[in-house]
Measured scan of single mutants.
Amino acid sequence: MQRVNMIMAESPGLITICLLGYLLSAECTVFLDHENANKILNRPKRYNSGKLEEFVQGNLERECMEEKCSFEEAREVFENTERTTEFWKQYVDGDQCESNPCLNGGSCKDDINSYECWCPFGFEGKNCELDVTCNIKNGRCEQFCKNSADNKVVCSCTEGYRLAENQKSCEPAVPFPCGRVSVSQTSKLTRAETVFPDVDYVNSTEAETILDNITQSTQSFNDFTRVVGGEDAKPGQFPWQVVLNGKVDAFCGGSIVNEKWIVTAAHCVETGVKITVVAGEHNIEETEHTEQKRNVIRIIPHHNYNAAINKYNHDIALLELDEPLVLNSYVTPICIADKEYTNIFLKFGSGYVSGWGRVFHKGRSALVLQYLRVPLVDRATCLRSTKFTIYNNMFCAGFHEGGRDSCQGDSGGPHVTEVEGTSFLTGIISWGEECAMKGKYGIYTKVSRYVNWIKEKTKLT
């Protein structure tokens, strides 16, 4: 034993070699072989497995989906700052455009905790909710729209109204504003409101030439003092309507412009014939205590009207009353817009006519005020429907199939267009061939041609 100890002390290297040989010859039971080890760690190889990531292109799944990435790591994937920024906006807080917040056709661009709407022409605001041009839906104005110097929408209202708090709607500024039905039992019968379409306001006024200088022999019209197929109006439903009495009662109609003036057809009036105007009328054979009678003290036909040349060209006249009318729910003026808007309103496509005229061709006159909704007829169809001249200051309205029309005794009465609950004068009943005849239409004086003249002559002093 002493000898062994001496050998170990003198030859430590020998001992180490012996131990190493023993270990190498022993069977290893701690580690699995290569094949079995792979069965336990069965993990798919990654895209760049075996390579240094710093030297390969980034992978979106590896960089940002398996674990949260930084902007720089995302930049490695896209290799483009702009594309990385677009991805980053949604990656950080989701897609803010998912709810489609942009209105009126706006395009949404996502941002971090926010979004941006790219608005089409005519709109602005956070969600493109603000109209900035009158060309689109009248700028959301209830009545009139004008573009300011910086191309912003400025709404306005006709006389007797003021802008509401929203700067879009119009509200009454006087007790009985024009064009409004205020009798409670008839307010439910107000005709369907007309909503502004998209309009090209630059070209809204037709490029028409008034044929002022045409000389033409007097034409022989049949029954051209021209509501057939209409309905009984309720008291106060058309408070701007008046009836004219002269040699015979209810020979023509008219509309209240203001307390002192009536507008009617020029062919209705004769110099030297006494005319009485009755406002607030409903049943011409009954006294309903809503009527107001006034005498006409002055007749002003349009300066281009000449019955000797043509009885229905420039067929418009103004009547001055001896005493002002007292405005109330049964006696209310009709609204008159400017030339541009009167023309736009007419193009809405349908209007209402009213009167006490004959209820059928050569038949009896109506006792109760009649009204009828009539569609506008395109000019080409209008011209083809008659052998008589249709001037540019006239328009056609009615039904091709016949059966409904204005008729004798309705002449001078109103053709009105309702705009968001307020009625505007767009025409004056003038003439036609018979009444409600198939293929024939009622012919009306186009008020847009005469609004400046009306307003100039009827100013209240």
Rank of each mutant, 00 (worst) to 15 (best):
Q2T: 05
M6A: 14
E10N: 11
E10A: 14
E10D: 12
P12R: 08
P12Y: 14
G13W: 03
L14W: 13
I17N: 01
I17W: 09
Y22G: 03
L24F: 11
S25Q: 08
E27T: 05
T29Q: 08
V30Q: 12
H34D: 06
H34P: 11
K39T: 11
I40V: 08
N42V: 11
N42E: 08
R43L: 08
P44S: 11
R46H: 02
R46A: 15
Y47C: 05
S49H: 09
E53L: 04
E54F: 03
N59Y: 06
N59Q: 12
S70F: 11
T84L: 05
E86N: 15
F87R: 15
W88N: 15
Q96S: 14
G106P: 03
G106C: 04
E116M: 12
E116L: 15
C117L: 01
E124Y: 11
G125V: 02
C128A: 03
L130T: 11
C134Q: 02
I136V: 12
E142D: 09
Q143C: 00
F144V: 01
K146L: 09
A149Y: 09
D150F: 05
V153D: 05
C155D: 00
S156P: 00
S156C: 04
E159C: 03
E159G: 05
Y161W: 08
R162A: 06
L163S: 03
C170N: 01
F176V: 07
P177S: 05
P177Y: 01
R180Q: 06
V181M: 11
S182G: 08
S184G: 10
T186Y: 10
T190K: 10
E193L: 12
T194V: 07
V195Q: 08
D198M: 10
N203E: 06
I210W: 12
D212Y: 08
N213C: 07
S217W: 10
F224M: 12
T225W: 12
T225A: 04
V227K: 09
A233Q: 06
K234N: 13
Q241P: 01
V242M: 00
K247H: 06
C252K: 00
G254P: 00
V257T: 01
V257C: 02
W261S: 01
T264F: 01
H267G: 04
C268Q: 00
V269W: 04
V269P: 02
T276L: 04
V277H: 01
H282T: 12
N283W: 06
E286F: 10
T287D: 10
T287Q: 09
T290M: 08
N295P: 03
P301L: 12
P301Y: 12
A307P: 11
A308K: 12
K311S: 08
Y312G: 06
N313K: 05
D315A: 02
D315Q: 01
A317W: 00
L319S: 00
D322M: 02
E323A: 10
E323I: 06
P324H: 05
P324D: 04
N328W: 00
T332K: 04
K339R: 10
K339P: 15
T342D: 04
N343K: 03
I344A: 14
L346E: 12
G349K: 09
Y352G: 06
S354L: 14
H361Q: 04
A366L: 13
L372T: 14
V374T: 10
L376E: 03
C382S: 02
R384W: 05
Y391N: 10
Y391S: 14
M394A: 12
G398V: 05
R404C: 14
R404P: 08
D405G: 13
G413A: 14
P414G: 14
T417L: 01
E418A: 14
E418Y: 13
E420M: 12
S423E: 02
S423Q: 13
L425W: 00
I429L: 12
S430N: 05
W431I: 05
G432D: 06
E433N: 13
C435K: 04
I443K: 07
T445M: 05
T445I: 02
T445Y: 05
S448G: 13
S448D: 15
N452G: 15
I454R: 01
K455V: 08
K459R: 03
L460I: 04
T461I: 06
T461C: 08
